[in-house]
Design a protein around this nucleic acid. Structure first.
Lengths: 343, 343
DNA sequence: TTGAAAGCGCTAACAT
DNA sequence: ATGTTAGCGCTTTCAA
């Protein structure tokens, strides 16, 4: 804030423009001049004032990332990926979390929370397509997450239906016949829809039941919700031989309940999660999980925003990220004679 | 970026100043005028340009939070607390992560990563006191974390020595006589120092050994490091009856290894972690842990930066946040006849 | 290759 | 209570 271009110019006995040229690495500056100006810059400890630059250029170098919940390790890991990708493009990331609450998501989407940004990456839970219709905000928006939208924005996601089918298919191939789903959403909005759909499709294809008694709805998606859902299913008299959870924390919460009730994983009940968070690799019974390529999602999201920012963007479209099923003890059982926790 | 004060002024048929008055909630504006201007603002969808405001006022409304690792749930939860506290003061948070690497921490501390901020909250791992000496950056800096610094900055932390002593004291009171520590740092910098110190002091006070064979050094502080450290101790022929881990992920990694080797927690070896992350409440054996008041830490950090920003700050000083020891199954054992996971 | 000057959108000092 | 205006520090024509 202290020393400006003007000061440097005065010190070096040149014009402001010349200093600016040096600062911005403009081509046509004689080495001698560059040298001389640089000396003044160093002497005075000049640092460009970004606010002025931003005002002039209309860009801030900041993109916002709005996630439902940082406490969920999937989102934390995703945030790390976005920050790293942004840094590669000299962008920094403003982080916001919405708690998955509609009002917060609205504020974010409308740009009321952060008004200094060049672009926005949003992972909505509650927001419906219509909520975006009257979006006055003009900065590029990129959507993340497992829902299907019909909106003129890029949307980065993995194929949730296929991924869910892969998870269930794995269970079926292991001989499981009664596969429960935990983590369907109670109430209006239904982010789990695609995973429920994949679950149902695969079971139907295998000639297995997917009735409502096997689906447990929850309010949230944390460990505690998974535990409650698992307890609910068992208390309801159902006794599945496998559980597919909306995400890893829920799966781990469910495993905790199974453990408390003396049910063995996977012998009595196999468990598959979703997101492949670190935690699942070190639980007493390591967790089989669908593993989305988080680094790719972060990278694609950043690249999408920036492309749109630079007008180099194609029609808004769905962008698929990769995923794979990582099979661990919660479905395969404990490999005999092994040591460390699996990858 | 599109519509400016000038546009609104023209649309409403008033001066720029009047519009500015309305936007900034200036007192002396007649309701009628306010109404009229507001209508134009809404009609045109005016949004203040923060870059311009920033240039003029020298403030951005942004504080940066630089954490070592978002993947560590403790830091993720802390970030959430900071974001929420900042929001209460109409500040937004730029998030950065350093990976605990010295160069990254230097860049952050010197302000090279984010140059649009009013203040900085930094949780350093590698940085030494001397690294801060020639800090050219002028924005207020607040330090977080378990190290002792002798620096002219506010430093928010819990009393790590006392907290570690409380953890070890708990183990000793349970009759444990051989308490290992995992998570001392290999190499130069030693963030775990205070926790090691508390561990040693309490053992010494109890007349119990704290020799080097009971301390396992690691490179990082993740699940895998905890697992490796635990394995290392057991392979080294030591057979502690309790383990105090630098943090929860390490404790959980250690428990995984104990589980693999058929050792029971807590019957054979009791385990205490640090940070009280969600994960420890749902592990097969729930984890006893030191629970820092994360919400308070986040709040105090934000308040410190803002106070310094507004010149309302006292001498830089150490600010203690609260903590407590949460006792769970990994030391107490499984309570008979209980259901859900403990708080 | 370098200089002069306009103006990005806003706030604040001053004027009315 | 409202209007006028200077200027924050920078980039960018345009001119030399």
């Amino acid at each position: 804030m202290r020393v400006s271009l003007k000061d440097v110019a005065a010190h070096a006995g040149v014009s402001i423009k010349t200093v600016s040229n040096v600062v911005n690495n403009y081509q046509h500056v004689t080495p001698a001049m560059r040298e001389r100006v640089q000396r003044s810059i160093d002497a005075l400890g000049y640092r460009p004032n970004l606010a002025a630059r931003h005002l002039r250029k209309g860009r801030t170098g900041i993109i916002a990332l709005a996630l439902p919940e940082l406490g969920n390790p999937y989102f934390a890991e995703l945030a790390a990926a976005v920050i790293d990708s942004a840094a590669e493009h000299d962008y920094i990331v403003l982080l916001d979390h919405t708690g998955g609450r509609r009002e917060q998501e609205m504020l974010v989407s409308q740009g009321f929370r952060a008004r200094v940004i060049d672009g926005l990456i949003l992972s909505p839970i509650e927001l419906e397509a219509k909520d975006f219709r009257d979006r006055a905000e003009h900065v590029p928006l990129v959507l993340l997450g497992e829902r299907d939208y019909d909106l003129p924005y890029d949307h980065i996601a993995i194929d949730n239906v296929a991924a869910a089918r892969a998870a269930v298919s794995h269970l079926v191939s292991l001989g499981r016949r009664k596969v429960a789903f935990i983590g369907a959403r109670r109430g209006r909005s239904q982010p789990a829809q695609l995973r429920v759909q994949g679950w149902r499709e695969e079971l139907t294809a295998a000639g297995l039941p997917s009735d409502e008694g096997l689906v447990a709805a929850t309010d949230g998606w944390g460990h505690a919700d998974g535990a409650a859902a698992m307890a609910h299913i068992l208390d309801g008299g159902e006794r599945p031989d496998a559980v597919f959870a909306y995400n890893d924390p829920m799966a781990i919460g469910a495993m905790r309940v199974l453990h408390e009730r003396g049910l063995r994983v996977p012998e009595d009940i196999a468990v598959v999660g979703f997101d492949d968070v670190l935690e699942g690799r070190f639980s007493a019974v390591t967790l089989t999980s669908v593993s989305p390529d988080k680094a790719a999602i972060g990278r694609l999201a950043v690249e999408s925003v920036l492309a749109r920012l630079h007008d180099a963007a194609p029609e808004p479209h769905r962008i698929w990220a990769d995923y794979r099923l990582v099979e661990r003890e919660s479905t395969l059982g404990r490999p005999s004679g092994t040591g460390g926790a699996g990858a």
